[in-house]
Amino acid sequence: MRQNPSFTLADEAEIRRVIEMSPWATIMSAGDDGLVASHYAVLLDETRDDLTIVGHVGRPDDLIHGMGERELLVVFQGPHGYVSPGWYGDVQAVPTWNYTAVHLAGVPEILSDEENLVVLDQLVARFESRMPEPKLMWERPNDAAFVQRLAAGTVGFRLTPTRVVAKRKLSQNKPVETIETVISALRSDGPYSNPALAEEMRRAQDARTGGRR
């Protein structure tokens, strides 16, 4: 991902926030047969306060990616969407796409069977806890044999990144008035309504201006 000083995201707390709210990640590597990509839910390692992540892949994706032997690139995509040149006013302009993205790269550590079970439990709890009647991994009608059998088809990993590239391209290079117009347009009921992107732009703009509008 090409970096631009105007759009660089370097705040680790903000990077963690993006990962936390966008856990559906793309995992990429250069395999024996060329580039390969997989898609899995990935979590921040709750035992760490850095950018270490934990997750799992299904077998045989561990072999396809050379898990534990080759570098992985894990991509998290935050809110993103189309920005119309019509929102800039009567000036020369072209369309663009605003987005937030985080790239973490490194060689992952393979988890033990016991550690993998913990991560699988955390993944289920993270998403199932929002349900009115959560069905957690170890609750009936699941039994230990069922859980162990499913876990055996997965390989858990922990990745402490050796390279981090994060970008928040949210019209920061535009005048404040233009940014406010874009935010309003994204909050409208038009064809490119995108409240999540509007909130990301609001957050970035308030961080830059100290909340002054």
Rank of each mutant, 00 (worst) to 15 (best):
R2D: 09
P5G: 03
F7W: 14
S29T: 14
A30N: 13
G31W: 05
D32A: 15
L35T: 08
L35N: 11
V36S: 07
H39P: 00
H39T: 05
A41K: 05
A41H: 13
E46M: 08
E46P: 12
R48K: 14
T52A: 15
V54D: 00
G55Q: 05
V57G: 02
P60C: 04
P60H: 11
E69C: 04
V74P: 00
Q77I: 09
P79V: 11
P79I: 06
G81V: 09
W87R: 00
Y88W: 10
Y88E: 08
Y99M: 10
V107N: 02
I110Y: 06
S112L: 12
N116H: 07
L123N: 02
K135P: 00
N142G: 01
A145G: 04
F146I: 12
R149Y: 03
R149E: 14
A151M: 13
V155Q: 03
F157A: 11
P161A: 14
V165W: 02
K167I: 07
L170N: 03
S171W: 00
I179H: 00
I179L: 09
E180N: 07
R187P: 01
S188W: 06
S193Y: 08
A198R: 02
E199F: 03
M201F: 06
A204V: 11
A204E: 07
R213L: 12
